[in-house]
Design a protein around this nucleic acid. Structure first.
Lengths: 103, 103
DNA sequence: ATCTTCTATCGGTAGATGACGATGAAAGAG
DNA sequence: CTCTTTCATCGTCATCTACCGATAGAAGAT
């Protein structure tokens, strides 16, 4: 994962509301969590929530699947796992060098 | 680490230049990397680099230690490790639930 | 066909962010 | 003391972000 992509994903994660949305989606068993459901869990307008979801979509962290009149969202576990791996590599790379000095 | 803090750190990481700065600091052996050194590695003005470093400082990702007329910067390995752990927990939490549906 | 629900998008506003050049303070060198 | 180097901060500008209300289109219900 390139720095540019990684930065994009980090930026998507860099807002408390979006972290909340991810948590809300993670708690849904069936993946049938639509925009209205998410909105009801948050003190924000539907349009605002929709915008945040769009950011998460573009970062590849969630996926959309239409179900009748609803748009349902769920986490993209594959991408999140990849991100976890990328972070591990990133941080261990940093720490590997940095620990020589920080002591 | 609370969502608010986590989001702050993510936001700090959510810019390619700041990721670059972290990489530059990680490559320094002695921790004697000053603002001018970092600036020479980047196509940006010194004031801009100083601003980015400030963001990283406030996120707790780097530390400053004066050395004569220079301000030297190094990574805070402890914080980065903590962040890595927080991310692991976050992602595994997400994936743990999400994987029930994504298959 | 009409009504309702859901939701993406638009338009607008306030505030944050990123970039720059200029400046001034601190610390060492001459 | 004077000069140079370093660098955080300030003022400014352009752009991006976050939020809202309004709207329109799609899909199902009546």
């Amino acid at each position: 994962m390139q720095d540019e992509d990684l930065a994009n994903v980090m930026r998507a994660l860099g807002h408390p509301v979006r972290l909340s949305i991810l948590r809300i989606l993670a708690e849904q068993r069936q993946g049938d969590c639509c925009c209205t459901d998410v909105t009801q869990c948050l003190p924000l307008a539907q349009s605002t929530v929709s915008q945040h979801i769009k950011v998460l979509l573009e970062a590849g962290l969630v996926q959309r699947h239409a179900r009748g009149t609803r748009n349902c969202y769920s986490l993209r576990a594959d991408r999140i796992e990849a991100l976890g791996a990328a972070c591990s590599g990133l941080f261990s790379g940093f720490v590997g060098q940095a620990s020589k000095e920080v002591a």
